[in-house]
């Protein structure tokens, strides 16, 4: 990718972590949701964040593209400081794609339009080129032929794959997945996970919040376990799942597996 070292990247080089969080803290009112979270994501790496509900996973992932402002700490995406009042949020979000639990497709536009809207109106790219790319993305997520369908006419799994294609159409450097299979029927979970796995294998940097332990084990290069706003334990999947050290991790895995 040639777009990795424009001036706004603050001298970021590919050997440094693509994303670096240092001591990130965030409170909603009196409730401290993130109590000092630090993690690094290298380019091309896929990491999974797992943990019980309410442990701050979704908040953590939303901080990375500045959907949620943080109280203190450092978040750097390709060297760009996210926790900066002068941050160009739109520039940041062009680099960071996001997929949500509830798909959040735009129901008044067709699947193809959903994919094309942001490149057309945000990046101001050429319509013909965007359409060709959108059709290719539809095929990539195995939805060729559904271009004219409205979100309401698609199954949950199909909608979620359109949402993935929509985020990819911006050609992001990193993709955030926020419990993207949590709202799906068990049968359709597979097709979505397959799409994500292909992305990770192609070298897309992925940060996934997930409850699919089997998937996390197969796809992730690194697992982070959060509980009550802190990262309790992290490591490569094999050691994390087979030899958890912290009692909280052991208890959590014991409940799930």
């Amino acid at each position: 990718m040639a777009a990795l070292s424009p001036p706004e990247d603050f001298g970021w080089t590919p050997d440094q972590p693509l994303i670096r969080l240092v001591d990130v803290r965030k409170s909603f009112g009196a409730i401290e949701v993130l109590k000092g979270v630090s993690l690094d994501v290298a380019k091309g790496e896929a990491i999974c964040i797992i943990g019980p509900s309410g442990s701050g996973k979704s908040t953590l992932i939303r901080c990375i593209n500045a959907l949620v402002p943080i109280d203190s700490g450092t978040i750097r995406v390709e060297g760009q400081e996210v926790n900066d009042p002068d941050l160009d949020k739109l520039a940041l979000r062009r680099k960071v794609g996001m997929v949500f639990q509830q798909y959040n497709l735009f129901p008044h536009r067709t699947a193809l339009d959903n994919i094309m809207m942001a490149p057309l109106h945000v990046l101001k790219q050429d319509r013909r080129e965007v359409e060709a790319r959108a059709r290719a993305l539809m095929a990539k997520v195995r939805l060729a032929g559904k271009e004219k369908a409205y979100p309401g006419e698609l199954s949950g799994g199909q909608q979620q794959r359109v949402a993935i294609a929509r985020a990819l159409a911006m050609r992001p450097d990193v993709m955030l997945f926020d419990e993207v299979t949590a709202a799906l029927d068990p049968e359709t979970v597979k097709e979505v996970l397959l799409t994500i796995r292909e992305l990770a294998e192609e070298g897309m940097t992925c940060i996934l919040v997930t409850h699919e332990m089997g998937f996390a084990r197969e796809v992730a290069d690194h697992i982070y376990f959060t509980d009550a706003g802190v990262i309790v334990e992290h490591g490569p999947p094999a050691s994390f799942f087979d030899d958890p050290r912290d009692p909280r991790t052991q208890a959590f895995l014991g409940q799930i597996l």
């Binding site: 593209n65 959907l67 949020k89 739109l90 520039a91 979000r93 062009r94 960071v96 794609g97 996001m98 949500f100 509830q102 959040n104 497709l105 735009f106 809207m117 942001a118 109106h121 945000v122 949402a163 929509r166 985020a167 911006m170």
Partner: peptide
Amino acid sequence: PSGQWEAAESLAF
């Protein structure tokens, strides 16, 4: 739903 805003924001609209 607020998800519509979030989705649009995350796409840099």
